[in-house]
């Protein structure tokens, strides 16, 4: 079916063209309010996981330790009025976990392939590498056409 192919193509293109995403977490401490950051991200080839890095001292890392459920936004807007008709935005719902042990090298390679200039940052001993298992994509195109994709486990 064409729209299925189309949706996958848009997601793939978004992840290939965009380097930054907005990450929303929930504050660990009272008052537990939503919190948003810009992060550098990479998606795995099967589009089932999103990888990003943060130093362990950050507020977002603390938030994630308390509440691993996250929302992210990736979009290709150009900050012009034409965006309303032309831009695509995807909201990603998922659960984050730090990547530790032998797996770390594989995920680090995925992240660095997208952001080679962040090598020093990612390999620093204080930096954590996280992966988000995607539970749902919500793709918005043409201003208000909305599709949801639930990745197979």
């Amino acid at each position: 079916m064409t729209e299925a192919v189309e949706v996958k193509r848009i997601l793939t293109e978004l992840f290939a063209s965009q380097r930054l995403a907005v990450l929303a977490t929930l504050a660990a401490e009272e008052p537990r309010r939503p919190y948003a950051n810009l992060i550098a991200f990479a998606a795995t080839a099967d589009l089932k996981e999103i990888v990003f890095a943060t130093t362990r001292a950050t507020r977002k890392f603390a938030n994630l330790a308390a509440e691993p459920r996250v929302a992210l936004i990736v979009d290709n807007r150009s900050n012009r009025e034409t965006d309303f008709g032309e831009a695509a935005a995807v909201t990603i719902l998922g659960t984050a976990a730090e990547v530790l042990g032998p797996e770390r090298e594989r995920y680090q390679a995925i992240f660095l392939a997208r952001h080679p200039y962040l090598r020093d940052f990612v390999t620093a001993p204080t930096c954590a590498l996280l992966r988000v298992r995607v539970e749902k994509y919500i793709l918005v195109t043409r201003f208000q056409e909305v599709h949801e994709v639930i990745p197979a486990p």
Binding site: E3, A4, V5, D46, H147, E148, V149, P151
Partner: peptide
């Protein structure tokens, strides 16, 4: 969607 999952329309 081949290799990804199921597509549902929301809006």
């Amino acid at each position: 969607i081949t290799g990804l999952g199921r597509l549902k329309t929301r809006q």
